[in-house]
Design a protein around this nucleic acid. Structure first.
Lengths: 117, 117
DNA sequence: CATTGTGCCTCGCAAAATGAGGTCAGTCAA
DNA sequence: TTGACTGACCTCATTTTGCGAGGCACAATG
């Protein structure tokens, strides 16, 4: 699903805390490597949200440290290497919880901002 | 509108960036003073989200510095003072923009997380 | 008279994203 | 073969924000 490019750039501050959720959701679709994640997000958001490396890699490593995801290197035909990240069972569970949290958060804000126009 | 109390506490990080939106939305309903804002939020969220003073006042002051809101002291009958905050025209405009941004943000995340269960 | 509630505030800390930087390995054209 | 470009990984300092804890002052309640 591709989100239409918004006229207003999305405030970076809003993104805070949603990154692990995004990452786990993406990895739910299958293992991906860093660069690929960035590109995927960029494309699906119509170019608005470019996940920054400085945000991605630390987040990925943290997720790995808590064993929500694993990583492994894979060599391509041309000899170059990529580091793939894959979701783990614990990550699945965490994702489920995070999703619930996300929905509650949205409900909460919506209660003040008013329902969507 | 009152949001049912969530089982999972909402991650603080998610809140980041949404505070000005909340504040402006609330002040749209009329002038309020700090303590009242905290109480209102607490009640409307069923007690889950207690806006912290350490988050509220700095945010309020920042909003005032940018002239999105104004403040004025009002003396009650019992002689005590309250500082009321009121939204300004510039704040109204900003709020409109922020709301749009919020909706886009939600759409974006939803595009990855998948539609609500 | 002491405790609780109202009501304002500030400060130091921690978490997270940003922006900028760095490295190395292939590709491709001049 | 040199140089530019892209793919691909990463780190670091700075900024922003919320949190927790604290402080102050006064009123109402027991």
């Amino acid at each position: 699903m591709i989100v239409p490019k918004p006229e207003v750039p999305v405030d970076r501050e809003l993104l805070k805390g949603s990154t692990p959720l995004l990452l786990l959701s993406l990895l739910c679709e299958g293992p991906m490597y860093g660069y690929q994640i960035i590109e995927t997000v960029r494309q699906r958001t119509g170019g608005t949200y470019t996940l920054k490396e400085g945000a991605l890699y630390p987040a990925l490593h943290k997720l790995e440290a808590t064993e929500f995801i694993t990583s492994y290197w894979e060599t391509q035909e041309n000899g170059r290497e990529r580091r793939y990240y894959a979701i783990q069972p614990a990550g699945q569970a965490f994702l489920t919880a995070k999703k619930k949290e996300w929905n509650q958060f949205v409900d909460m804000v919506q209660a003040f901002v008013g329902p969507r126009a």
